[in-house]
């Protein structure tokens, strides 16, 4: 494109210049991008130490949130399993007879929200209590059985979350025969709250680390730009646009993210492998079978993408600030 000489291309002699047809320019565009991407990779190769440091910082910064993410994910899975076991006890009024209890039990068993209803009669309850409490014969002095009949209700799948189970409990408590109900979800809620806290901390930490990655990449690219000051000035003198000059630096940032992301995969896998044995040791104490799940394919892809975007963002910031400021004097 010629600004000052509109018809420069068609003029004779020294002014003659063949204009490239537009479709060839269009075809050349991705080819140029690819060339520049490969060229900036070559540039990294020529100065491997500095770029490797930046990539390592990028990768390791992403490793910490990734590993924490894996832990939170696994904890969520475990607590999910525990929540499945939530059952509720409904204490019945003492003045109702066995027949009414049986009716209630059958009624509830038919509800779609309920998986299973078990009756613990007051006699059974007293027997269990005698056995477990160790009061033994002391209980014989009681004139009558103080315990009520209890219906143990296990909610159906989909009604086992603390909220749903609570709703079901208050619904069941409405029944005339029920004195009161009890659902031990408080510890579940506490666990949930802790998990949410861990997630928030993870989010904050990930944000800060991502920010520092952007700044570190930006600083490295800034140094790259300053070290190529002369070259940039020459390019500007012969008519290079800022977009043209900044492209290789942007690609450098992308490569930092590309390789840093792969480093993050390996470092995360290593970290997970490192803590896995101690995690399994802990879960063994609770006599549960537990397998620590690592990153799946989508999560790895996401980490890679985040790394690349961070690399690009860092270099973009540096490029925006510094390429414009370098002008031939």
């Amino acid at each position: 494109m010629s600004l000052l000489f509109r018809n420069r291309e068609t003029e004779a002699g020294a002014r003659k210049r063949h204009k490239l047809p537009w479709f060839r320019r269009l075809i050349m565009l991705p080819v140029h991008h690819l060339q520049q991407a490969v060229a900036s990779l070559g540039e990294l190769w020529r100065n491997p130490f500095a770029s490797l440091l930046t990539m390592a910082v990028l990768g390791l910064s992403l490793t910490l949130p990734s590993a924490l993410y894996v832990l939170v994910k696994n904890t969520a899975t475990i607590s999910g399993e525990w929540q499945q076991a939530s059952q509720m006890s409904l204490f019945l009024r003492k003045d109702i007879n066995t027949q009414a209890i049986d009716t209630l039990k059958t009624q509830w068993s038919l509800k779609p929200e309920i998986d299973e209803v078990t009756l613990i009669s007051k006699e059974q309850g007293l027997k269990d209590f005698r056995q477990l409490s160790g009061f033994g014969e002391t209980l014989d002095y009681l004139e009558e059985n103080p315990l009520p009949d209890v219906l143990l209700v296990i909610p159906a799948e989909g009604f086992r979350s603390p909220q749903a189970a609570k709703r079901l409990l208050s619904e069941l408590e409405q029944a005339r025969e029920v004195d009161f109900g009890k659902l031990d979800v408080e510890w579940l809620e506490r666990l949930q709250a802790l998990l949410d806290l861990a997630k928030d901390i993870l989010g904050g930490l990930a944000f800060l680390l991502c920010l520092s990655v952007v700044l570190i990449v930006g600083n490295t690219i800034r140094l790259n730009i300053l070290s190529q000051r002369e070259e940039i000035i020459v390019m500007k003198l012969v008519g290079a646009t800022n977009a043209f000059i900044q492209r290789p630096f942007l690609y450098t940032g992308v490569w930092y993210g590309f390789i840093g992301g792969i480093l993050a995969w390996f470092a995360t896998a290593l970290l997970i492998w490192w803590i896995e044995s101690s995690v399994v040791a802990v879960t063994d104490l609770y006599e549960t079978q537990f397998q620590l799940a690592g990153l799946n394919f989508n999560e790895m892809l996401a980490i890679w993408l985040i790394a690349i975007v961070l690399g690009l963002a860092g270099s973009y910031i540096a490029v925006r600030r510094h390429i414009k400021s370098i002008e031939p004097q």
């Binding site: 494109m1 000052l4 000489f5 000035i233 020459v234 500007k236 003198l237 008519g239 290079a240």
Partner: peptide, 24 residues
């Protein structure tokens, strides 16, 4: 009337030679 973003295109119409050649 040439805006800063158009300067590169102006320079493409001008061949410049320097005392210190400014080669890479």
């Amino acid at each position: 009337k040439i805006k800063p973003s158009q300067i590169p295109f102006v320079r493409r119409d001008i061949g410049m030679i320097f005392q210190d050649h400014r080669l890479l």
